[in-house]
Design a protein around this nucleic acid. Structure first.
Length: 527
DNA sequence: GATGCCGGGGT
DNA sequence: ACCCCGGCATC
């Protein structure tokens, strides 16, 4: 870490490093701010100014000027401008320590100079911290080297510029945001004392940031040096915040390190996201099922809709945090579930993602009940997935251990689809209920009671009077199957019932059940 | 011989 | 997974 610090410093001192850093911060800070609050008074560019100005005073300005004088034309102008703006803004904004703290560069220096305190303050109470930092700086007599001073304003946490004087609320919101961001990024930057960084960045931002930073070239090795253990993704936990603080204090370089870490894992993060896990934020307010993709969004929602706060103001006492929760949505499942659902419900035109109202059938109601709890998307998905199993292909049911029959409403029986044999069997019931929506037979395998074939008996096919009996037998058979099979060599006794072959004859082979056609155990006329 | 269907192979 | 068929057991 020491070496790192040194390195960083030098890089900053050398104009090159400084410039690079500067740029990098820019993107970074912007992103952070964006993540934290949308309604900041000042759009991105302003942040830039502040960033550059990062916790500096007139002295800093001087330093920078000289710094600029070292001959970086592009950066110089900017810097100077920024300086001015920064100064002015400082006056205007006063206690918006955030801005000042937006130190572009190293916080390592900061750490050393201001052992921990500044950083921790920074995180917990940015506003105050900023003030403290300022005062501190004043006390220090601006003697702090630039490299060290810049960091002072912790850039760890993105603090909204128009932060409310009551830094407390902000701090909580921020913490929430941070944590949220944390959980958003699956990669859980372990060592990162500032996991917020990567997490809160959008891919785009990350890219831009990484580009600018990559030029400095000393990011990567930092990452490998990560030895600071940290709890992986402890979302929504104050502890996380603490740990966060802790690590920040422990090593100011962590910030940069974490950043580098981020770059190192720049790939994995987006990749993981692609991996279909998306974090959503669900409003927990009673009767409010609102789900938003961003924490800020949900916070705003809660703030404005439920807490009756002014939507324009970003004031937040952190109360919103209690009214929303994070949920993870597996997009893959969603997609799969939906895609698989659609095709498997031939009898229902555009089946809704929700199960249709039951026919008063027990099985149905059960399912509905389950679905009723589908407040979470994941649940929905997980529920919908099995539903595909509900699509019963009687013809192939024999291949499964589950019996062909399932408890269905009488009116449903024989009407639904499932029989691949008879054409046009896929008409739904009068209620528009599709067999496809019935629960998987497996679930009801052992359920006795009125059972009927779901499969529609094709035209001309005589229904076995004892259908239900068949089904029951079939079930038993399914249960007994292991035994039967346990005796190798023993063949299942031939069923007594006439099979498709006999019933229809060879000439009507088309009417056979598939099993029969495949020379499998007749599935239509079970014993 | 006809039938039922297991086991296995092809796509 | 779907489809087909050889071959065996049973009737």
């Amino acid at each position: 870490m020491e070496s790192k610090c040194i390195l960083e410093k030098s890089s900053v001192v050398t104009s090159v490093g400084g410039v690079v850093d500067f740029n990098y911060r820019l993107g970074r800070y912007k992103s952070r701010v964006t993540a934290v609050e949308k309604n900041s008074y000042t759009p991105g560019p302003i942040f830039y100014k502040y960033v550059t100005d990062g916790g500096s005073t007139a002295a800093v300005k001087n330093e920078r000027t000289s710094f600029a004088g070292s001959g970086h034309s592009p950066g110089v102008g900017v810097l100077q401008d920024v300086e001015k703006t920064g100064l002015r803004d400082q006056k205007d904004i006063g206690s918006t320590g955030i801005l000042k703290r937006a130190s572009p560069t190293l916080c390592l220096g900061t750490v050393r100079q201001l052992p921990g305190s500044s950083i921790s303050l920074d995180i917990r109470n940015p506003g105050k911290q900023a003030e403290l930092a300022n005062s501190f700086r004043a006390a220090q007599g601006q003697n702090v080297p630039q490299a060290q001073r810049q960091p002072l304003p912790s850039s760890h946490i993105p603090v909204p510029r128009n932060r409310n004087p009551s830094g407390h609320a902000d701090k909580e919101v921020m913490a929430a945001t941070v944590l949220t961001s944390l959980s958003t990024s699956p990669l859980v930057l372990c060592p990162s004392s500032v996991p917020t960084e990567p997490a809160s960045k959008t891919l785009k931002e990350v890219l831009s940031a990484s580009y600018s930073s990559s030029t400095s070239g000393n990011w990567s090795w930092d990452a490998s040096d990560q030895s600071v253990p940290s709890t992986p993704s402890p979302p929504l936990s104050k502890d996380a915040n603490l740990g966060f603080l802790h690590s920040s204090q422990g090593d100011g370089a962590n910030e940069d390190v974490s950043e580098s870490t981020h770059f190192m894992f720049d790939d994995p993060i987006p990749r993981k996201r692609k991996n279909s896990m998306k974090v959503m934020f669900k409003c927990l307010w009673k009767n409010c099922e609102k789900v938003l993709s961003t924490s800020s969004g949900i916070q705003r929602h809660i703030r404005t809709v439920h807490l009756g706060r002014n939507s324009d103001s970003d004031y937040s006492d952190g109360e919103e945090d209690f009214y929303y929760s994070e949920i993870e949505v597996n997009m893959d499942s969603l997609t799969e579930g939906l895609s698989s659902l659609t095709p498997t419900s031939p009898t229902t035109a555009g089946p809704p993602p929700i199960f249709p109202p039951p026919l008063s059938d027990v099985s149905h109601s059960e399912y509905i009940a389950v679905n009723g709890s589908q407040s979470h998307l994941p649940s929905l998905l997980s529920q919908s997935a099995p539903s595909t199993l509900c699509h019963i292909r009687t013809d192939h049911a024999y291949q499964a251990t589950a019996p062909v029959s399932i408890p269905v409403g009488p009116e449903l029986a024989g009407i639904g689809s499932g029989n691949g044999i008879g054409p046009g069997t896929g008409t739904g019931t009068g209620n528009g209920i599709s067999v496809s929506w019935q629960p998987p037979p497996v679930i009801f395998k052992g359920a006795p009671g009125p059972v009927t074939h779901v499969r529609t008996v094709s035209i001309g096919e005589k229904r076995q009077p004892a259908t239900s009996t068949h089904a029951a037998v079939n079930k038993n058979h399914a249960l007994i199957t292991p035994q039967t099979k346990s005796a190798p060599g023993t063949r299942k006794p031939r069923g007594e019932a006439k099979k498709c072959r006999k019933v229809y004859g060879m000439e009507k082979r088309d009417m056979w059940c598939t099993a029969c056609r495949w020379k499998k155990a007749c599935q239509r006329f079970t014993d």
